[in-house]
Design a protein around this nucleic acid. Structure first.
Lengths: 107, 107
DNA sequence: TTCCAATACTTCGGATGTCGAGGTATTGTG
DNA sequence: CACAATACCTCGACATCCGAAGTATTGGAA
């Protein structure tokens, strides 16, 4: 089954924050982690991720810094802030809540 | 808690079809049914509903007809088609599926 | 050694869905 | 007679998502 991506819309930030909650990471890595976690059935497109990173950084949810890899391509790492942790907790609650509502409505 | 409506995005059609599955209805009624089902915590805005009805009708998921009320304002009723029933079953599966995915990703 | 796949980042513009604001018409009630 | 409630509808703004395209680096295959 190929998922209609609009179903995930609005949850992008929550998904990203969920990964950053466990440690700094970078776009490509997060993308691969999502693919692994869902057995290759779901991924956030690169453009979507970058839009989200910009949005989250502007909102003070994350900060970013360049890694000093001396091998391979440079990486921009993202780190969750305290505000980001709070936002994540809130997103999580909202997900649980909207799940309940949709379970009521799609029966 | 006030729900971020973007979380519901993409599920509007499924919600509407879910109601029409149980019998013909009209916009205002469906709106009220949703409000009741969620204890007033969630509603689809009128403009959203009309956009969705147009979309569903153009897609052959529903048909519409004018009720012949001799009392009160005229009502446009919507009826689900066979294609609509199939689409609904599919939407329902997709919802179950995306629920699993999001539960994996928002942890 | 040359080419290509993979890693990694980024921008742009189009498509889509949602909804606030505004509008029309009818009926029943104070 | 005004007004709330029912019921319909349109427009335009806005946010998000993502396809497409582009840059740069490294390592391995041919």
């Amino acid at each position: 089954m190929s998922i209609t991506f609009d179903l995930i819309r609005g949850h992008t930030d929550a998904i990203i924050l969920s990964y950053l909650f466990e440690g700094d990471s970078y776009s490509y890595q997060i993308n691969k982690d999502i693919l692994n976690a869902t057995d290759g059935q779901f991924e956030l497109k690169e453009a979507t991720l970058y839009t989200a990173f910009r949005r989250l950084e502007q909102g003070g949810m994350i900060t970013s810094y360049w890694g000093n890899e001396n091998v391979g391509a440079r990486r921009r790492y993202y780190r969750i802030t305290e505000d980001g942790r709070e936002a994540y907790a809130s997103y999580k609650r909202e997900w649980e809540y909207s799940k309940k509502i949709l379970d009521k409505l799609i029966k």
